[in-house]
Simulated scan of single mutants.
Amino acid sequence: MEDQALAAATADRIDGKAFADGLVARMAAEVAQIRADTGLLPGLAVVLVGEDAASAVYVNAKHRQTMAVGMASFVHRLPAETSQADLLALLDQLNADTAVHGILVQLPLPAHLDALEVIERIDPAKDVDGFHAVNAGRLATGQEALVPCTPLGCLMMLKDRLGDLTGLNAVVIGKSNIVGKPMSQLLLAENCTVITTHSKTKNLPDLCRMADILVVAVGRPGLVRGDWIRPGATVIDVGINRVEENGKSRITGDVAFEEAGHAAAITPVPGGVGPMTIACLLANTLTAFRRRHSLPAVSLAAE
C-alpha cells in the first residue's frame, strides 16, 4: 500500500527555465540602472580555442544572453593550434582591460594546452566560472568569492523553493570541483547539515534517504532510484546524460525521474538546472562589476 501511495504522488517540477528567465529580466533592469547612473557597463570576455561543436554552441549562447541583458560581450575565437604562451598572453591582456569584469575560458581545451595553468592565470576577481583556487579557497573558508555557476543556480532554486535552509539535512552526490564540492560548501554556509558522497561511498541509498535536500551530480543516468528518496524531499538533478533507447536518443538526468513522484519537488532534465548556468554566469559578471567599482551588492532574488 505504501509503495502504491508513493507511486501515485506527483512531485512539483522546479521550472529552471522560468526561474532563469526571471533572473535574466531582473539583471537586465539592474544593468540598465547601472548604465544610467554611471555610464558604465559590466563586460564579459569569453575565450574559445578550437572548433569543438558543442563548445561553439555554448559560446554563442553566452554571447546572445550577455547582449540580451545589456552587458558588453567580448568573444575571442582562437585557432586550435594556439600555443599555451599565446593563450596566457591573451588572458594577461583581459586581466588588465578595465572594460572586462568577467573572463571565461570555454572548456575543454585542445589536448596540448594546460587547462589548470590557464584557469590559474585568470584574475580571481574576474573568474566568473569560480574555478580559480583562490575562489575555491575563499568559498571553503566562508569568505567572499565568485562561485561556480551550476551550484550557485542550484542554491538559488533551493532558497526560492524552501526559504531558510537552516537545519535541513542535505546530501550531495558528487565531489567534483565544478559542482559537488562547491555545492556542499554553499549548503554549509546556509547552515545545512551536509553529507558529501561519491562513487566510493558505502550505503549510498541509506544516506540519501536521510536527505531533506538531495543534489545529484555524477553523470550516471538513473543512478538514484525512487526508493532512495525520502518522501517530501527536494531533489536537484544536475545530471545531463544522452542515452540511446530503441534506436532513439534522449536526454535524461541522474535521478530516475518517473520513480520520484513522492518527492516534494524535483528539477526535470532537461529544463531544470541547465538553464540556470548561463544566467548565473551573468550574475557572477554583475557581482564582479559591483565589487570592482565598490558598489553595494544587490539581491537578484525573485520578489
Rank of each mutant, 00 (worst) to 15 (best):
P148F: 08
A111T: 14
L146M: 09
V69G: 09
P110V: 08
V49E: 04
V134F: 13
P79L: 07
D114W: 08
E144A: 15
A56P: 01
T66F: 03
A96I: 11
G130E: 08
L41R: 06
E120C: 09
M67E: 14
L87V: 03
D52K: 07
L139G: 01
N95G: 11
L109W: 04
N95H: 13
G137F: 13
H112R: 06
L94C: 05
T66K: 03
A85I: 02
S73Q: 09
E144V: 14
P79Y: 10
N135L: 07
V118L: 08
N60L: 11
V75N: 06
D114N: 15
Q106M: 11
C149R: 05
L104D: 04
L78G: 00
A89F: 08
G142S: 08
T66I: 08
G50K: 07
H101D: 01
Q93D: 15
D52L: 06
D86I: 01
A111S: 14
A125T: 11
A85W: 03
G70N: 10
V100Y: 02
D129Y: 12
A111E: 15
E144Y: 00
Q65Y: 09
V59N: 03
V46F: 00
L48N: 05
E144P: 01
A72W: 09
V49K: 03
E144F: 04
E120R: 11
L104Q: 02
G102N: 05
P108G: 07
D86R: 12
K62M: 07
V57K: 11
H76F: 15
I103F: 09
E120L: 10
L88I: 06
H63D: 14
V69R: 01
T66V: 11
Q143I: 00
T150V: 09
A140S: 13
D127W: 10
L94K: 01
V57A: 12
T141Q: 10
D52A: 06
A115V: 07
G130P: 06
A111K: 15
D86P: 03
R64P: 04
A85P: 02
C149W: 04
V100E: 03
H132A: 06
P148D: 09
G142W: 07
A145F: 03
M67T: 12
E51Y: 09
H63S: 12
V57S: 10
I119C: 06
E51R: 13
